[in-house]
Amino acid sequence: MPNVVLRTENLTKRYGSLTAVNNLTLEVYEGEIFGFLGPNGAGKTTSINMMCGLLEPDAGRVWIHDTPLDGDDKGARSRIGVCPQNVVLWERLTCLEQLQFVGQLYGGRAGEARRRANHLLEILGLTEKRNAMARTLSGGMQRRLNLALALIHDPEIVVLDEPEAGLDPQSRVGLREYIRSLTREAQGVRPKTVILTTHNMDEADRLADRVAIIDYGELLILDTPETLKQRVGEGDIIEIRLSDSPADMATVIAALAAIAAEVRWETAEHTLQVRALHAISKLAELIEVLTALDLQPGEINLRANTLEDVFIQLTGRRLRE
């Protein structure tokens, strides 16, 4: 049984008539990367703020290990490091100065804060910029410094809000590797638990050990990415793009349903989505049926279920605020 590092119990927050978070109960295990997903306005930020002690719940409680998180308990609060989505830096302080400053505010001694700041600057490739003011850094460097500030006090839990936003592919790959490394035991550094909030399903799929999806303030599902993907349906997905919309869609779907487990027409993309076990072996048969119905298949893609399928299935396609 894994150790529970953070637990929320019936966490609820209301703003007037709006219930931003409703009875959120979940457990985050020590050393895992926990993906926290949801559409805009789903209640992610409110939940995270309550988990960090920045917001008091109207009902329910947050526990860090066995200690309830009290709004005034700065000790418990400082066991969490938060890397906000927006770059939050002091423009006129150097990289080293702001890391030292925050490190000392967390209670670290000057020497210790300096040592840790230099260590983080090195890991995140900012050593050469240690004496450069934050406003002179490139966007990617600022994002890395933003992350370093969340880690300067060596927290047990690190909350990363959209950490890959605004990063180039090289930085993204490097960051993913670094996030993974955070959860591993390293010399002199204890493994951390990472809570990752993101819209990027690929990021969550690649990184997260478990994923929670919330919407309208409620937890919809919580499991490993693999299990979640299986829940959408067994088998792979074949996407067949047609040049024209079929006149009799019901006939097309009925004909294909005899071969596949699930058939869906995506109007906007002029695409038939066909889910089937051993999909590749059924490809020729599907094309035959379409040809018999006088339909010309265009581009054909074969792919496995993704977290995005899970996400869309659970939260719908309607645009949010």
Binding site: L54, R77, S78, P84, V88, Y106, L149
Partner: peptide, 10 residues
């Protein structure tokens, strides 16, 4: 937003 960051400290 730096105040929010400071709020997390001691």
């Amino acid at each position: 937003g730096t105040l929010r960051r400071l709020q997390l400290t001691r």
